[in-house]
Design a protein around this nucleic acid. Structure first.
Lengths: 243, 243
DNA sequence: CGTTCGATTGATGTTCTTCAATATGCGTGG
DNA sequence: CCACGCATATTGAAGAACATCAATCGAACG
């Protein structure tokens, strides 16, 4: 995908939740950044290190993560193409989290100054950016709730539903068949499990709901069953707000 | 505490992380709201219901929570006096989360319109509000990481450290002796545990680090030990950023 | 053709939950 | 003032979920 196509995807994402004037859309669409290629496993942002740009994912798959003292990681967000993975860093340039490429990925590093300037000149854009990070936090809160109160199979089913819905809402794929080139070890870091248990959990969902992980894609045989198994309700994704 | 004192506390909190001009401070300080008394356990905001005001805690203790289908709750944030518990709702007035009073509390309901107006007229205030919700999300990410990767005792120790640091940073109390009138059942909802296990966990910390829950207060005998036990590093609280 | 990474499976151990009972403090009505 | 009821804290025993350790298998790749 071309860089400007990624920016267009980001703008579309913003427009999904916020009302922005044509002039402001144009200003957003004019955003530019440095194109960077990341290898599999590469850390693009390190926890506790300052950054001066936000990371727009062009292609691939990114994870925001927190690191324990012993090096173990917990993934706190997954980002798909068109996501600005750390728009947060615009008001908070010294983040406690890190960003990692889960597969070879291409990102656009957009200077904080440009985003900040845009937000300062256009209140509607400031509000739209703010809203975007709140939607991100809403997803994070749901992950917290699931980690605290749902068992492994439920949590995994929920995550698959979430990624499917997001892929579909952002018109990248269909909910029951979408790109998610993630290993079981990476899934384990996202779900707060061990790789061994992820393997058994995925196997359960394969039998119960026809969930297949193949060729870096997820295919869901029984979507309705998966939604039920994961207690999934898409309200928290904030896909139909418009303010 | 008087309502205007609570607003002052909120303003001080904003100033902790953001540079705001004197005129803007004055505008913030002029915020007013409806004073509401909440009884113990009362839900102030219900998940999935629209709101038209943000909730500033004057006195007491609030929890933001997510609710499972079977009614079980997971607390995703604890709020102390001076916190705006759902500043998030300004850009996102249909939240997926709820807000509950854990003890009899007094809140100030501040109209979204006033906050939104302020943010639109003063870019620095918009940025400060945005920054505040990002700091809140940073705490949430840490909770997610701990729920996913830390055991019960570590998680509990971490939470106590966090609340102590926040109380001290906001000049409400000292880190090793502060008000936290929370029951073990409520702690369980925050830590993703059962009340029984919270009881045993708290008992362990009482022995290992001299942690006492008494009279609605927490007292910590061995703060350094507790920090070590909880792998606590306060960077994620964003207490020393200034932008 | 060997090496490496990821997926898979089995056996065993630990953590946390569940169920159940008892204790303790505190407010309320008698 | 005392008796009672209710919420919270505490403890014990048994079970379930998940982790840990260890090994095998298969595919991709140099």
């Amino acid at each position: 995908m071309h860089s400007h196509a990624a920016v267009a995807l980001f703008v579309r994402r913003i427009l999904l939740r916020s009302v922005v004037s044509p002039g402001e859309v144009q200003a957003l669409s004019g955003l530019e950044g440095r194109r960077v290629q990341a290898s599999r496993g590469q850390d693009l942002v390190l926890p506790g290190h300052g950054v001066h740009h936000a990371t727009l994912l062009v292609s691939g798959l990114l994870a925001r993560f927190d690191q324990m003292a012993d090096g173990r990681r917990q993934i706190t967000a997954l980002h798909i193409p068109g996501d600005m993975a750390d728009l947060h860093s615009v008001p908070m340039p010294l983040p406690a989290w890190g960003i990692q490429a889960l597969v070879p990925s291409v990102v656009l590093q957009i200077p904080h100054g440009d985003l900040r300037g845009l937000a300062e000149r256009k209140p509607a854009i400031a509000m739209a950016f703010w809203r975007d990070t709140v939607a991100d936090a809403s997803i994070l809160a749901k992950w917290t709730a699931n980690l605290g109160r749902a068992d492994a199979v439920t949590r995994t089913a929920h995550l698959i539903c979430e990624m499917g819905m997001r892929m579909e809402a952002h018109e990248l794929d269909q909910r029951h068949d979408f790109a998610l080139p993630i290993t079981q070890a990476q899934l384990a870091d996202a779900l707060g499990l061990t790789t061994v248990h992820v393997n058994r959990t995925v196997s359960t969902l394969r039998q119960e709901c026809g969930v297949l992980f193949e060729q870096g894609r997820v295919r869901v045989g029984d979507w309705t069953g998966l939604v039920r198994r994961g207690n999934f309700d898409d309200g928290y994704l904030m896909l139909d707000v418009k303010a």
